[in-house]
Design a protein around this nucleic acid. Structure first.
Length: 723
RNA sequence: GCCACUUUAGCUCAGCGGUAGAGCGACGCUUUCGUAAAGCGUAGGUCCAGGGUUCAAAUCCCUGAAGUGGCUCCA
């Protein structure tokens, strides 16, 4: 028998005469550890607690809680993977003929994709039954038993069960562990029985699992969703059942409470309560109506960024909401993103003429969507590549012209640049606009302000020489940094999106892409923030740098973006006269520090839970007279505030002051000024600061006005006014 | 777009075949008050829309719209 030496995390070694299991190792360390052990990590790989360790290895025992008292993320994943099996068995017991597909753990829980028989779909009404069944399985505390068969036997077993999804999983597993890939390893399939193989429920599974069902203390079925097999929308539709699990009921309860709290800061809920925006069915899905209060927030953000733009040498431009279809065929937006744009707007006369010719719908679409031969050859010549798809090229007399609701601002800005001749001395030219664009998002994607069909980008396009790219990109990045730090959004990461190495989803010369990607990478390096490079994440015309901001609940939002573009200047034939007196093609940089005003405000609402810094607050101060006796004084206070440019109101209703405070607190107003006879006599105001449970004390009205003016002017993120 | 669920007063929701309900808000009156809701009263509804079943539909069935959670997508 070979002896095995186990090295523990603290460096101690334990000799064993026979290959021990993780449980044996834990038992040798102590009975308490053996009791708590869920699995074992062998040379960094998580394995079943009872699997034999056949060679000398570094071993650590995985318990639910780590030494510092926090939950081990490995243990949680393990437990949730096991919980997914328990849920799958429970569902299988309740719904006959349910075919299991795939059930992985997630950072917050787990799901199982299941194909239900058509006559028996799952509904949320089944949750109670499923949970009861899961509890029964947990109470039985059955062992998770692993067994392996060779590929042929395993496949035979699965095929006899008639579940094509599991057969497919097995085929993938065999392919992934094929001898050619891993040398000597023979491909085998592993199964886990929840209890005894042959007697209890079992599933094809790589594992590992917790030792027994009883170790999963608390499971809850959370929601239903649909998914596609292999994520392919043309493939089978599956039902995805989400759940979560913890070792104890208390942790589950805490998690559910946390979820509730998260939904309480939902921008749609807060937006309605604070009357920040409205979406009206009659106006249309995904179209935001900014109400007066939300209008203040947006206006302040726009003023803020406009000030920065002046400092950085930008020019403000204004362009209309539509443009000729031809423009977007030139830019490439129309062919590339046809599916996610509103349909073209076609002139009445053109429609009537086609209709008179008996032109059918398909023919009409073809003649709208086609590209003229002249445009195709021009662009292909300029970009030295076949960028116009030949089957869409029609002779000019067959084309129908139309307009597009603009999906991007760049073509309009390009035309502004092209309207004048430029010398290299003029560059960079920086054109900025709060430009509203429209995109046809799928209805199921729409979500409050964060996913909409019409939105305003804080857009700008910079036209510069190749030598200026690096510096201009850095300028853009510093702008994004100013924006994020002013708003106290300091938890973000930076993603450099590079072209997909093997896909054809990019246009242009690879050498230019290399240049652009290098410029982005270098600029990201100078940021002093961690960044990741992600191939395949580029725009079709160039690489980009995205700022992904993490909000208070840990969700990530892609907000600011900077993109380098060598393609559009070529497609539009842009040029400037260089020092050599010859024309050169400029490089374009697209950038939007907020991204979209709608989405940014939505994220901002959730970030602050509606409690905006004073400079952004729709209502900055509310004056609360104690009774009608001080209404007059309250109004004089209001006048003083308004004269100082402070957004303020008076609550002169006949509520008691407690009621007025409650109402003002619910509207998340930064400062309340409570005024009674005592204050009126001395020209004072009694201050109450948002988030503070008690009176901050009295102060002179003039002092308050000066302090809040300073706080607003500095765009401070905190409430700084004190008596 | 796909799957599940939801849609009743301005808001949050109850009612689930037999007269349309509550709390908050709004409005009015009383109270004139010192730090997170004073008291009383009044108004407010095409029960999402259209069709069907029924003596009778907010309630059951069908179709559609919108919303929510996911899937897929996001220049």
């Amino acid at each position: 028998m070979p002896s095995v030496t186990i090295t523990l995390p603290d460096g101690k070694t334990l000799p064993f005469d026979n290959p021990p299991s993780g449980f044996d190792v834990a038992s040798k360390i102590g009975p308490r550890l053996a009791k708590d052990a869920l699995a074992v990590k062998v040379d960094g790989e998580v394995r079943d607690l009872h699997a034999p360790i056949t060679h000398d290895a570094k071993v650590s025992i995985i318990t639910y809680k780590m030494r510092d008292g926090t939950v081990d993320p490995d243990a949680l994943l393990l437990l949730r993977h096991s919980a997914a099996h328990i849920m799958a068995e429970a569902i299988g017991n309740i719904v006959k003929g349910a075919q299991l597909v795939y059930g992985p753990p997630l950072p917050t829980g787990f799901y199982y994709d299941i194909k239900f028989p058509d006559d028996r779909p799952l509904s949320t009404n089944d949750f109670a039954n499923i949970e009861a069944e899961m509890k029964r399985i947990v109470a039985e505390d059955r062992k998770f038993t692993r067994y392996e068969c060779d590929a042929a036997a395993g496949m035979g077993k699965l095929k006899s069960e008639g579940n094509k999804y599991k057969v497919d999983n097995a085929e993938r597993a065999i392919a992934a562990s094929s001898p050619s890939a891993l040398g000597t390893q023979t491909s085998a399939l592993s199964f886990y029985a929840t209890g005894e193989p042959g007697k209890n429920w079992e599933d094809l599974c790589r594992g590992p699992h917790v030792p027994s069902t009883g170790r999963v203390g608390a499971i809850k079925v959370l929601s239903l969703a649909s998914s596609f097999w292999h994520g392919d929308e043309n493939s089978d539709r599956l039902t995805r059942v989400y759940g979560t699990a913890f070792a104890t009921q208390q942790e589950l309860d805490e998690y559910l409470k946390q979820r509730e709290e998260a939904s309480a800061r939902d921008h749609r809920v807060i937006g309605a309560k604070l009357k920040l925006f409205h979406i009206d069915e009659a106006v249309g899905q995904g179209l935001i109506l900014w109400t007066p209060a939300g209008g203040v927030v947006r206006d302040q953000l726009q003023k803020f960024i406009s000030e920065e733009l002046v400092k950085q040498g930008y020019h403000q431009v204004f362009t209309p909401h539509i443009g000729r279809l031809e423009l977007y065929k030139t830019s490439g937006h129309f062919p590339y993103y046809k599916e996610s744009q509103f349909a073209p707007i076609i002139e009445r006369d053109a429609l009537a003429e086609l209709s008179a010719q008996g032109c059918g719908c398909a023919e009409m679409m073809h003649r709208v969507e086609g590209v003229s031969a002249r445009l195709a050859s021009t662009i292909n010549e300029r970009t030295k590549k076949q960028t116009i798809t030949p089957d869409r090229v029609l002779s000019d007399d067959k084309l129908i012209e139309g307009f597009m609701l603009k999906p991007m601002n760049c073509p309009h800005h390009i035309k502004i640049f092209a309207s004048q001749q430029h010398s290299y001395r003029d560059l960079p030219v920086r054109l900025a606009e709060f430009g509203t664009v429209y995109r046809w998002e799928q209805s199921g994607e729409l979500n409050g302000m964060t996913r909409v069909r019409g939105f305003t980008q804080d857009d700008a396009h910079l036209f510069c020489t190749p030598e200026q790219v690096a510096q201009e990109v850095q300028g853009c990045l510093s702008l994004v940094k100013i924006v994020l730090s002013t708003l106290n959004m300091n938890n973000y990461r930076v993603r450099v999106g590079l072209r997909d190495p093997d896909a054809k989803k990019f246009t242009g010369d690879p050498a230019q892409w290399d240049l652009a990607e290098a410029a982005c990478r270098n600029a990201a390096k100078t940021l002093g923030v961690q960044f990741s490079e992600e191939p395949g994440e580029a725009a079709f015309y160039g690489p980009k740098i995205d700022f992904v901001v993490k909000d208070v609940i840990g969700r990530e939002w892609q907000l600011g973006t900077v993109q380098v573009d060598y393609q559009l200047p070529l497609r539009f034939g842009l040029s400037y006269i260089g020092a050599d007196n010859k024309p050169h093609t400029p490089v374009m940089i697209h950038r939007a520090p907020f991204g979209s005003m709608e989405r940014f405000c939505g994220v901002l609402i959730e970030h602050f839970a509606g409690a905006f810094p004073t400079w952004l607050s729709p209502e900055q101060v509310r004056v609360l007279p104690i009774s009608e006796k001080t209404n007059e004084y309250a109004h004089s206070v209001l006048t003083a505030l308004k004269n100082a440019g402070v957004r303020a109101t008076v609550d002169d209703g006949n509520d008691r002051v407690q009621g007025k405070i409650k109402a003002a607190a619910e509207m998340k107003i930064p400062y309340m000024l409570i005024v009674g006879p005592r204050d009126a006599e001395q020209g004072n105001v009694s201050l109450r600061v948002r988030g503070v449970e008690k009176d901050a004390g009295a102060m002179k009205l003039e002092t308050f006005v000066e302090s809040i003016k300073r706080e607003i002017a500095e765009r401070r993120a905190d409430l700084s006014v004190k008596p």
